[in-house]
């Protein structure tokens, strides 16, 4: 069977192959799951072109790529608006469209949001690594040779049966913030008892600015000081000298990892362990917001229970289905 290929004319900014939920079973060896940050938009793009929701697709970040189709394809773009053009004509988001052999799809800089997902009917067929096609750039593995797209690269695509003209209902799309302010859910823990009551309130009531020193490994936040309980300030020496130091432990994805006074939200390409505390954790239901926010955006944190976070995730999962489709 011949593989329809896509040729990379311009790579964009760290455009990577991802799948969902990424790499499972190797976290304990030091491989984080990887996968798309905004997995809501990612799954909708796949559903539009008739793929399984988690199939491999492209994550375009801030500046999109230019790609030439070597064979006819059905594609869909979901997420931030990168003013995409196919053969020079504007392409709508949240909709499946047909691309002809030889046509060029060109994405620009993100006008809204930060990440745009490109799914292709048949899905991207790079060799899986430890059961996943997700790219883990820090570990040089997965995706296309373990790296972001490069000029002249060729992306293999499987045979697909996509149908153009399918659209995601307005009510089933994530609403990308237009005022650069986001309400982000957090759950308390695992190490919230290291932060005193005033420190916890300060975290929940303050504005936090997303730092430019952020990537798929972690999002750094800028905001007020943290204050600690006795547990952090009066502890055995093997915990380390800073109040935010603890004995090395594993890091949950979404953990707000406190390094000294700098909180870092750990994303899907995180380092898997370390010696800093995690007072709060961002649950899966808020990851689409992380994926669509950009440096300088403001986060307000909203404390939710674990049950509530799980319910919100189920609500998003329910929208990642054929029920969200209408005809254009």
């Amino acid at each position: 069977m011949t593989m329809p290929m896509i040729e990379v004319l311009k790579p964009g900014l760290e455009t990577c192959v991802q799948d969902y939920p990424g790499r499972k079973g190797a976290f304990g060896m030091g491989f984080p799951p990887s996968g798309p940050v905004d997995h809501w938009s990612f799954r909708l793009a796949n559903i539009l072109v008739g793929n399984a929701p988690g199939d491999a697709a492209l994550e375009c970040q801030f500046i999109g790529p230019a790609l030439k189709f070597k064979a006819p394809a059905v594609i869909a773009l979901c997420g931030g608006d990168m003013a995409a053009k196919l053969g020079g004509a504007p392409v709508p988001l949240w909709q499946s469209i047909a691309a002809e052999a030889g046509q060029v799809l060109e994405l620009g800089s993100a006008l809204t949001g930060a990440r745009t997902y490109l799914a292709i009917a048949g899905s991207i067929d790079t060799p899986p690594f430890l059961g996943s096609r997700s790219t883990f750039v820090l570990g040089d593995c997965g995706g296309l040779n373990g790296a972001p797209l490069e000029v002249g690269g060729e992306i293999p695509v499987g045979e697909g049966q996509g149908v153009p003209g399918r659209k995601i209902k307005q009510s089933c799309r994530p609403a990308v913030s237009e005022n650069h302010r986001w309400q982000i859910e957090v759950c308390a823990g695992p190490n919230d008892d290291w932060i005193d009551a005033a420190g916890q309130q300060r975290f929940l009531k303050s504005e936090w600015k997303l730092s430019p020193k952020s990537n798929r490994v972690g999002f750094r936040l800028e905001g007020p000081e943290w204050t600690f309980t006795e547990k952090a300030t009066n502890k055995a020496p093997e915990n380390g000298s800073d109040p935010s130091n603890t004995i090395d432990h594993g890091y949950p994805i979404g953990a707000i990892n406190l390094c000294g006074q700098t909180p870092i939200i750990l994303l899907h390409d995180t380092l898997t362990l370390g010696g800093f505390i995690n007072p709060f954790t961002v649950p899966s239901s808020a990851f689409w917001k992380l994926g669509q926010s950009r440096p300088g955006d403001i986060y307000d944190f909203e404390l939710v229970s674990v049950d509530e976070a799980q319910a919100r995730k189920r609500a998003i999962n329910a929208m990642c289905s054929e029920d969200s489709i209408e005809q254009a």
Binding site: C187, A188, P190, P252, I253, G254, A255, V306
Partner: peptide, 18 residues
């Protein structure tokens, strides 16, 4: 058993290097 969001638990068995 300390919750880490909607899909993780940190099970702490003790608090020293031992």
């Amino acid at each position: 058993f300390l919750p880490g969001g909607d899909r993780f638990i940190e099970m702490e068995l003790g608090d020293e290097l031992n």
